[in-house]
Amino acid sequence: MKSIIFLCVCGLLYRSALSQDSAVGPIGNFIRTNLVGQPVIHDHQTWIFDPDLSLRRRKQFIELNGDKGVYLIERLGLGIDGRADERLQKQRQRDEGHLGGLNYFLP
């Protein structure tokens, strides 16, 4: 068991030495990548965030896509190949007389 662990550690050290040639060396590189983490992880980041933006855009979304995205779902189902009018007519003929397109409650 000890020999397997020793071989795994040696393999990881050898692999890290081959993949990144740096002044730190293979042991320092192994510690940095596996224990501490890359320096990018520890950088401080700032994000511009406006929590009220969604409230301002909600009205625009409802006007364009309908309440809860009903028109959006319909538009996605019509496709983008220029045959949207044909598909819309077929869908409306298919759904005529059904409850939301479902015939579960109808005989």
Results as ranks from 00 to 15, higher is better:
Met1Gln: 07
Met1Ile: 06
Ser3Leu: 07
Ile4Phe: 10
Ile4Ser: 06
Val9Glu: 02
Ala17Glu: 03
Ser19Phe: 08
Ser19Thr: 12
Gln20Trp: 02
Asp21Ala: 14
Val24Ser: 08
Pro26Ala: 10
Pro26Glu: 03
Phe30Lys: 01
Thr33Gly: 02
Leu35Ile: 15
Gly37Ile: 04
Gln38Lys: 04
Gln38Leu: 10
Gln38His: 11
Pro39Met: 02
Pro39Ser: 05
Val40Gly: 05
Val40Thr: 05
Asp43Glu: 15
Gln45Thr: 02
Thr46Lys: 02
Trp47Glu: 07
Ile48His: 00
Ile48Gln: 04
Asp50Gln: 07
Asp52Phe: 13
Leu53Gln: 13
Leu55Phe: 02
Arg57Pro: 00
Arg57Ser: 12
Gln60Val: 15
Phe61His: 10
Ile62Phe: 02
Leu64Asn: 01
Leu64Gln: 08
Asn65Cys: 11
Gly66Leu: 00
Lys68Phe: 01
Gly69Ala: 02
Val70Met: 09
Val70Asp: 03
Tyr71Phe: 09
Tyr71Ala: 04
Leu72Thr: 09
Ile73Pro: 00
Ile73Ala: 11
Leu76Tyr: 06
Gly77Gln: 12
Gly77Thr: 12
Gly82Leu: 02
Gly82Met: 08
Gly82Cys: 03
Gln89Lys: 15
Lys90Gly: 10
Lys90Asn: 14
Gln91Trp: 04
Arg92Ser: 01
Arg92Trp: 03
Gln93Asp: 15
Gln93Glu: 14
Asp95Asn: 15
Asp95Lys: 04
Glu96Asn: 10
Gly97Cys: 05
Gly97Val: 02
His98Tyr: 07
Leu99Cys: 11
Leu99Met: 14
Gly100His: 06
Gly101His: 06
Leu102Met: 14
Asn103Arg: 15
Tyr104Phe: 14
Tyr104Met: 11
Tyr104Thr: 15
Tyr104Val: 15
Tyr104Ala: 02
Leu106His: 08
